[in-house]
Design a protein around this nucleic acid. Structure first.
Lengths: 196, 196
DNA sequence: CTTACTACATACAGACTGTATGTATCATGA
DNA sequence: TCATGATACATACAGTCTGTATGTAGTAAG
């Protein structure tokens, strides 16, 4: 029977520690918010020491950024999965995507990290960058193509992308506070219809 | 020539101190954000001591809330002033209001306080409450009336109000980051048109 | 098997928040 | 007008947090 001195490769150690930190941090940031979560709390929940945290992450902010990025990736995956391979039209794709997004955001912790603390802590500019990287800029590209193929009106593409995201985000926020998703989807559909 | 022992009524003292604190706090919160602004900094800028701050405000958060409320009031006033007494239609009122809002939010500090730190620090729910109180819920009431008078489609009023606000907010945010206001106003107009 | 490097653990300095307590100024009733 | 109480602060302190510096154990490499 092996004592506590388990031999593990450095790579395995790093992966285990980083993963434990990210997981513990995600839960605490979700539950209490970034500012109200202390690094001592995080490391205790993760079963490591602050030394480990500051070895793997530059600071508390860098840890939060990593958590945010993981959330963005997870959401992008869920949306992709929710949209059928071949939507009937660009608007149909938007409709499916908006439902997928609201579904993916039906987690209060996720809303807090991505829509409340995220903009304030890491800034909207960097958040947009993360979004583009993790979502492969799907929304913008989809809209651009829909414009080129005359499926929707020609409008300023950047502004349109930004504002559509805003609609999705605030809908998710409202739903997380108890609003009926269907009400918000109805407004979204009305907007999509106006694009044709 | 009066020495330093000026006699002032308690009311005057309170007003002067509170005002100095709010003004200094507003500038610092605008420039550096809530978390990065310390109470020692605030009181130094205001020319008072931390004792005065904690005498007039329960804590740093309460001071921030007061700053936020003042901003909401200022913005509501600017919007009201920007909308002509008798708009031609409900949609026309929306158009004017949206321009007034973007104008009022053309201050990066204001955007930071109201749209970035605000939601994260005081929470979206309480922010919405402040908004309703300070704006007299103008947007919602205007939309409700426009629906009754058949000027715009019948849609879930709460969700519509929330999402319209979202469009305004994100447009203001994007403009504060350098986007062209006209691009965003064009999208807003398209959305307004979709309501008729 | 030695040497270097990685992955931590521990200790510490500086700063910040909120509170407790002390003091000066103002309001008030006799 | 003078004592008494209330208000508006000022100062000191306790507890906590962040980031860094330094020390150590486990791992990789020759």
């Amino acid at each position: 029977m092996q004592q506590k001195g388990k031999p593990r490769s450095n790579q395995a150690r790093t992966e285990a520690t980083r993963s434990a930190l990210l997981s513990a941090a995600r839960k605490l940031f979700s539950d209490k918010g970034y500012a109200e979560t202390s690094t001592p709390e995080i490391v205790e929940a993760a079963g490591v020491t602050r030394g480990a945290l500051y070895h793997h992450f530059e600071d508390k902010l860098a840890l939060f950024r990593s958590v945010v990025r993981e959330e963005y990736i997870a959401v992008a995956d869920e949306i992709t999965a929710s949209v059928k391979a071949e939507p009937d039209s660009a608007v149909d794709a938007l409709r499916q995507g908006s439902r997928g997004y609201l579904q993916a955001m039906s987690d209060k912790g996720r809303v807090r990290i991505m829509l409340l603390d995220g903009p304030a802590v890491v800034g909207q500019v960097e958040l947009d960058k993360i979004d583009r990287e993790t979502s492969a800029d799907t929304l913008r590209l989809g809209l651009a193509e829909a414009m080129e193929t005359q499926q929707i009106k020609h409008l300023p593409i950047n502004a349109l992308t930004v504002q559509l995201s805003a609609l999705f985000d605030r809908a998710a926020l409202a739903v997380s506070e108890g609003d009926d998703p269907e009400d918000h989807l109805e407004i979204l559909d009305a907007f999509f219809a106006s694009l044709t």
